[in-house]
C-alpha cells in the first residue's frame, strides 16, 4: 500500500534528549490522522521532520511518495502546513502575507488569495496589518496560507489553537469538508475532543514513542465503559452492591458509585433491582463511556 506519509524508525535526539524514538508512522490517502501527545512528547519535532525542517538523527521520511530532505527537498507544492503558533510579517497586511505565499508557491491565479480569504472568513481583516490581528485571526491566516494552493496533504500542528468556540467548529467543518474532497490531513492537537470528533485514526505519542494507534472502530472498543450510580444513602448503596458481588468504587468528584464490571454495564437493571431491594433506590443510573481524553491520560500515565 502506498502511504501519503511514511516514516521508518524515525528518531531525533538533541544532545542527550531523545525527542523522537523509532517512530513508524503510516498515514493513508484520505485519512484524518490525529496526532496526540503531552507537551514535549515529540509531536512538533515529528511534524518538523515530516516537513524537512529538522533532519532525522536516524530513520527516514517519505511524503507523497517522495523522500524528504536533505536540503529541504520535498513535494511542497502539494503540501500545506501550519507549524506551532502561526506567524506573519507584522508590517504586511493579511492579503500581502498571502500574496507572498501565492508567489512563492508559483501560483499564477491571483484570485486564489481572495478565495482563501473568504474561505477562512478573513475578509474584514484582509487589509489590516498582520501585527494587529488577534491570535484567532492569525491562526486563520496561517490556515489560509496552508490551504492557498489546494494541497493534497495538510500537516497541521494545533489547528484550533487560539480560536474561539465558534471558530473551532468552523475550522472543524472546514477540515471535514476538505477530507471529504480527498485531502489527507495529519493534525496534532491538545484539544483532544477535537481530534476525537474529526480523526479517522489516532496516534498517541509519548516520550518520543508512538505508544498506540487507534482506528475509529478500535477507539470504540478500547474505551472503557462504566456504570455510574447515585443514591440518597450512598454508603448503604455501596454496601448493598458489594454484598451482591459487584466491585464498587466511590468517585469523590461526582459523589457517585462507579461499577466497571461487565455484569453491571451489560445489565444495569439488575443493579437497580439490588438497590431497590436494599431500600436505597438509585436516583441516577447511567452507563458512561470514557472519553478519549481519559483514555489518553491513562495511557500516558497522567491518570492511574
Amino acid at each position: 500500500m502506498k502511504y501519503v506519509i511514511e516514516t521508518n524508525q524515525l528518531s531525533k535526539s538533541f544532545g542527550p534528549v531523545q525527542a523522537v524514538n523509532g517512530l513508524n508512522l503510516r498515514v493513508g490517502a484520505g485519512e484524518i490522522y490525529g496526532f496526540l501527545g503531552l507537551n514535549g512528547a515529540g509531536k512538533t519535532t515529528t511534524i518538523r521532520m515530516l516537513l524537512g525542517m529538522i533532519a532525522p538523527s536516524v530513520g527516514s521520511v517519505r511524503v507523497l511518495n517522495q523522500a524528504v530532505g536533505p536540503n529541504g527537498r520535498g513535494p511542497w507544492a502539494r503540501v500545506g502546513h501550519l507549524v506551532e503558533s502561526p506567524a506573519a510579517y507584522p508590517d504586511l497586511s493579511t492579503r500581502e502575507n498571502l500574496e507572498i505565499a501565492r508567489r512563492l508557491h508559483g501560483l499564477t491565479d491571483a484570485n486564489v488569495v481572495s478565495r482563501v480569504i473568504e474561505q477562512l472568513s478573513l475578509t474584514p481583516y484582509a487589509d489590516r496589518k498582520a501585527g494587529t490581528l488577534s491570535m484567532g485571526n492569525l491562526q486563520r491566516l496561517g490556515l489560509a496560507r496552508a490551504l492557498l494552493h489546494r494541497p493534497e496533504l495538510l500537516i497541521l500542528d494545533e489547528p484550533a489553537n487560539g480560536l474561539d468556540p465558534a471558530g473551532v467548529v468552523e475550522i472543524r467543518e472546514l477540515l471535514a469538508g476538505l477530507a471529504r474532497e480527498g485531502v489527507t490531513i495529519l493534525m496534532s492537537s491538545h484539544i483532544l475532543t477535537e481530534v476525537d470528533r474529526l480523526a479517522t485514526r489516532i496516534g498517541i505519542i509519548h516520550q518520543g514513542r508512538l505508544i498506540e494507534e487507534l482506528d475509529a472502530a478500535t477507539m470504540e472498543e478500547l474505551r472503557a465503559q462504566r456504570l455510574l450510580v447515585q443514591a440518597r444513602d450512598l454508603p448503604a448503596a455501596q454496601a448493598a452492591l458489594t454484598a451482591a458481588g459487584y466491585s464498587v468504587e466511590k468517585e469523590r468528584a461526582s459523589q457517585a458509585l462507579v461499577l466497571k464490571d461487565a455484569r453491571a454495564i451489560e445489565a444495569p437493571e439488575e443493579v437497580a433491582t439490588v438497590l431497590v431491594g436494599a431500600g436505597t433506590p438509585p436516583t441516577h443510573l447511567a452507563v458512561e463511556q470514557e472519553n478519549l481524553e481519559e483514555h489518553f491520560l491513562r495511557l500516558t500515565g497522567v491518570l492511574q
Partner: peptide, 18 residues
C-alpha cells in the same frame, strides 16, 4: 524575531533561492 522562518522552509521556492 518574527518567527516567520518556518513559513518558507517547506515551499516550492528553495531556501537557496530565498
Amino acid at each position: 524575531s518574527d518567527r516567520t522562518v518556518k513559513e518558507w522552509l517547506a515551499l516550492p521556492a528553495s531556501r537557496s533561492t530565498i
